[in-house]
Amino acid sequence: MQNKPKTGVLLVNLGTPDQPTSHAVKKFLSQFLHDQRVVDMSRWLWCPLLHGIILPVRAPKVAKLYQQVWMEQGSPLLVYSKRQADALAKVLDCPVELGMTYGNPSLLSGIERLIQAGVDEVVILPLYPQYSATTTAAAVDGIGKALGCLTLVPALRTIDAYYQHPLYIKALAESVRSSWDKHGQSDYLLCSYHGIPKRYADNGDVYPQHCVATTELLAQELGLDESQIGMSYQSRFGREEWLQPYTDKTLHQLAKDGVTSLDIITPAFAVDCLETLEEISEECREEFLHAGGHSFNYIPCLNDDELHIEMMAALVQR
């Protein structure tokens, strides 16, 4: 009788610099921004611009921002992702490894550790609730490249999106309710999602539809109407039009409309990272208060919350 395949899980996130230094940030951003899934400009135009202007200017600035959020154990994204992997391994009682699309630990190293643990079937779980070619598809591309380095390739199953999963929505809702219990409910709940160029959506990327659906499902779960909850997109880069409404402009409009207290959550991020801890929690706080708001409350990502891990386990077992 043939033995049942031993299954392992590879959690995939975008990645992070190894250190909060200009050199490490430049190395990480170079790998990230070279991916045509992320920036689809012609290479002969993009590469000179990237290496001649963008990286030399942005790397030192971004390094200073990383220094503000860096934890004793390392980058927040890596620290929380490791905690997720450890917690999920305990729940599933199977090997769980971590791999980053860019940077370390690499996707190849994660798969190799699973193979060394005796795994012959791998469930790939990209930590992106909403599908986008810039994230989920880029992770799948990276997996394909990693497999090209292996002689023995394990069986693979990939989870591409989970924005509609009841446990994901429940976990988001419980994180909001927990914040309300601690700080009180604000006038308005803003769901801020990482943006992508509008052109990508026009060309077929379903990401904005997934973000809209996430917001609607969360509103239903919390019993909020359109006057109490909304959504926006953050982290735009360059002069090209990105998905709208933009988070920074939305904050100004909300304050102008008389919203004095604001809760903000980032449902597209599975763990806290530079974009949530610095851009949202710090920069957006200053924007809203400067625009006339009185109270700003950032609701942390789900990270290794028990319901979040329960949801991951359900995805893998399904």
Rank of each mutant, 00 (worst) to 15 (best):
D93S: 14
K26I: 04
C47F: 13
T247D: 06
K145D: 12
G293V: 01
G15P: 12
G238F: 08
T16F: 14
L274P: 10
S186Q: 14
S192V: 08
G148E: 07
L150P: 03
D141E: 11
R318M: 11
P126G: 09
A87H: 02
E112Q: 15
G15Y: 13
C47T: 11
R37C: 01
P95A: 13
V62D: 03
I124Q: 10
D120F: 07
A87P: 05
A87Q: 07
V271A: 15
Q317Y: 04
L217R: 10
C149R: 12
I309S: 01
A137R: 04
L167E: 14
S42I: 05
E283Q: 06
A155D: 15
L307I: 03
V62P: 04
A171G: 10
L29W: 10
D263Y: 06
P267G: 09
K198E: 14
D202W: 01
A255I: 00
M311C: 02
D40V: 01
L10M: 04
F237R: 04
D141L: 04
I159K: 10
D93N: 15
D305Y: 13
L147Y: 05
H165K: 03
L147V: 09
F28M: 04
Q164R: 10
P154E: 14
L274F: 13
A314Y: 03
P20C: 07
F296G: 06
S109D: 15
I111Y: 03
T7S: 09
F237D: 06
A24G: 09
V122M: 13
